[in-house]
Design a protein around this nucleic acid. Structure first.
Lengths: 247, 247
DNA sequence: TGTACATCAGTGAACGCGCGTTCACTGATGTAC
DNA sequence: TGTACATCAGTGAACGCGCGTTCACTGATGTAC
């Protein structure tokens, strides 16, 4: 995203950064092959044809590598979703929202281990430092909230002004810091949409759907998201006109 | 559930079984305290004041203990949900379904590690043997499907006879083996309901909701489930009349 | 343009640790006569 | 009722393994004069 503060001018600095990237790439590959649990320094070093101790030139500890992977993963979903939205037309249908949802699912299916690292249960014996990961984690949420706001402004989504319980209000208010100007019922609806989106993806990636349906999970996913949109007051015509990406 | 085939008559057999239970209980406690990852034979033995090798009298391997915990966990959710439904009235509202959903959530929040073991991503380096866990895993699903069927029969839930894509049909058909006689659109709706339920619980337990909202997640959960029910054609009056358990 | 020097990349041995599992064993518990 | 015996529970040492991390080191790479 943002360029690093000090531009890596010298050759050495560039090679150093390249190796840092290689470490992460190899770690990702190992995770993809053997699962999150077996991610260890020695395996990474082995794969790179190095000694384990050499890795300490690039990361101060094993946990630092994990944190870097977490940040990268959040950034990767963020990018994938952002790009999908950028490619979608700004029309009066839900095509863009569907594109975002499908991009999220696609990334999760393509990177199940990284998805587990970020959107699964907390990794035992490791807690990702909020401060370092928060910004990256926020990206996807911001895209979704921005889309919802745009849909509200365009009149595609119409959320009735129901009463929101007092206890929910302060929590919901913190949601729109980054995408201000949304009414409380819309924020509540956004949270419900998030739960549906999260569940539809996690259930598939983590294998908690009946096996015979797993192969057709894409269709179910699309239907589920469309249902969630209709709940948010999207008119049937706008939904019918909306195009889902191939899945 | 079912009593063991051979009744454990002798004193020795009974004590043996008691120790098996103790091993599992201690393992559960350790998991609750230190997370799924740090579940190991030696820690269990230590906690029990035994040698690690002594555990081999009761389980043939570490994986066997894990499998036993998985089966127990599925049975525990199953029981919790079954009992909640049994306590709920057979009336013309959605009270019973809400009770089941809330019981599921309650159990998950009270046993986050066991929830992760069963409804989280596959545990690295361990694959639960389908054959041994399938029956226990099915219990909760059967309760939910049975409730849905009851609601259909009572006319509480009304699912329009929309067309179901051909590719989905065989997969959906396998769903109602245990609760036969449900139309395809109802089965599709059941799957969507499952994804919502799964997402609303997993997002909270795994910590993937904005922190300020976590404390009020119960309210959001209730609203989300109620929305999902209204999607299934439950009349507003029936929903208003339905009572959620305390949360 | 060539040389002296500082900086960095990577090695390899070692540390202490904890793990799952095996094996020969010692007592204790229950059983058969 | 008392004794001999089989069965089981649990011990403790050992096996081989892999892990994260430290440390003194050797070359290679780039820099300053």
């Amino acid at each position: 995203m943002l360029p690093t503060v000090s531009s890596p001018s010298t050759r050495r600095e560039r090679q150093h950064l390249a190796t840092v990237e290689e470490v992460k790439a190899v770690a990702r590959d190992l995770m993809a092959r053997d699962g999150t649990g077996s991610l260890n320094l020695r395996a990474i070093a082995r794969e790179m044809g190095m000694t384990a101790s050499a890795l300490y030139r690039y990361f101060p500890s094993r946990d630092a590598i994990l944190t870097a992977l977490v940040v990268d993963a959040y950034d990767a979903v963020g990018s994938a979703v952002e790009e999908a939205v950028a490619r979608a037309p700004v029309d009066t249908t839900c095509t863009a929202i569907l594109a975002a949802a499908h991009a999220f699912r696609r990334w999760a299916l393509d990177h199940p281990q990284e998805y587990g690292l970020t959107y699964g249960p907390p990794v035992p014996g490791y807690e990702a430092p909020e401060q370092e990961t928060a910004a990256a984690k926020m990206r996807t949420n911001i895209v979704l909230l921005t889309l919802l706001k745009r849909a509200l402004d365009q009149g595609i989504v119409r959320i009735p002004e129901v009463d929101i319980p007092a206890r929910l209000r302060p929590g919901l208010r913190t949601l729109d810091e980054r995408v201000p100007g949304m009414p409380l019922p819309a924020l509540a609806a956004a949270m419900q949409f998030w739960m549906v989106l999260y569940g539809a993806i996690a259930a598939e990636v983590f294998g908690h759907m009946p096996r015979p349906l797993l192969a057709q999970a894409g269709i179910l996913f699309d239907r589920t998201i469309r249902t969630a949109l209709s709940v948010m007051g999207v008119a049937p015509e706008a939904l019918t006109a909306a195009i889902s990406p191939k899945f």
